[in-house]
Computed example of a mutant assay.
Amino acid sequence: MATLAEFTLPLDAFPLGVVCEEFPDATVELERVVPTADAMRQYVWVEHVPAESIATFLESQTDTAGVKLVDQVDDRTLFRYHSDSDGCGVLEALVDSDTTLLSATGTRAGWRVHVRGDVQQAVADFDERCRRAGVQPTLRDLHATVGTQPSQRTAVTDAQREALLLAYANGYYADPRETNLSELAAEVGISRQAFARRLSRGYRTLVESHLALPTADEGVS
């Protein structure tokens, strides 16, 4: 039975905790984390701090491999951030314990994270592996997903989500286009054909989930 857990973690549990140390009013929300062979790619929302200030600060960090502004809504800014891969104890704990990071929000007080394990033992393993890595998690909530109904909408996979976000961030949808499928595929280390299929399946899933025509039973309004 799947189990949901909420933990609080110290600010240095994730590398981007330095943003909250530098800007006490900032709120950092990890949108997507993609560990690769030589770097860690992260999509991260930052609130309550000017985008230029965040970009300048991140670019000044010694482990920063790249920063790009992707989107901006009011005082929320979405960045794609690359850092040199020195490892992250929490991310390694997630992988080793077979748990899924549902959300991670950081403030000056620390990180609040929500994880899901297919079984309760996975959550316990996550806690133990964090401690082995020198991170001290505090469990705030734990419950099984009893009585929940699976969504009738099909969600994009992590790989499809990464492809869609990467294409958007690099200007694939711009007019004129600022990149091509070969360049995008090279960035994630797969073939052009494989990336094109991943992008196509992501499109199809989004259309079927959110834009598909109603069935005959549902009727048309």
Rank of each mutant, 00 (worst) to 15 (best):
L69T: 15
S85W: 08
Q149F: 12
S53C: 07
T62H: 14
T154V: 14
L4Y: 09
E47I: 01
D175V: 15
L58H: 05
M40H: 02
L4W: 09
F79A: 06
S200W: 00
M40T: 09
L78H: 07
N180V: 01
S103Q: 11
W111R: 04
Q152T: 10
A196L: 02
S151L: 12
A39S: 14
R76E: 11
T36I: 00
R192D: 01
Y81L: 14
V18N: 05
N170W: 07
L58F: 07
E92N: 06
L164C: 02
T157L: 00
A13W: 09
P176E: 13
P10Q: 07
S83Q: 14
A155S: 14
T105V: 15
F14N: 06
A185E: 01
G106T: 13
T205H: 03
A196S: 13
A169F: 00
L199R: 01
M40N: 06
T36S: 14
E47L: 06
L211M: 09
L11W: 02
C88Y: 02
V34I: 11
A2F: 10
I54C: 13
F7M: 04
D127L: 11
E31F: 02
S209M: 03
V207C: 11
E178T: 11
L184R: 00
T148S: 05
A144G: 13
A185P: 00
E218S: 12
C130E: 03
R197Q: 12
V123Q: 06
V146T: 10
R201M: 02
S83A: 04
L165W: 02
A174V: 03
R197S: 10
V19H: 11
S97R: 13
R140P: 04
D71C: 05
R177G: 10
L11F: 04
W111T: 01
Q61K: 10
E187F: 05
D158W: 02
R132C: 02
A155E: 14
K68P: 03
V113A: 03
L139D: 11
T148C: 06
V207F: 12
H48I: 04
P150A: 08
D125I: 03
R116V: 14
P35D: 01
Q72D: 10
S151D: 13
G219R: 12
W111Q: 04
D118C: 07
R32D: 05
A104Q: 02
D141Y: 09
A51H: 14
H210W: 07
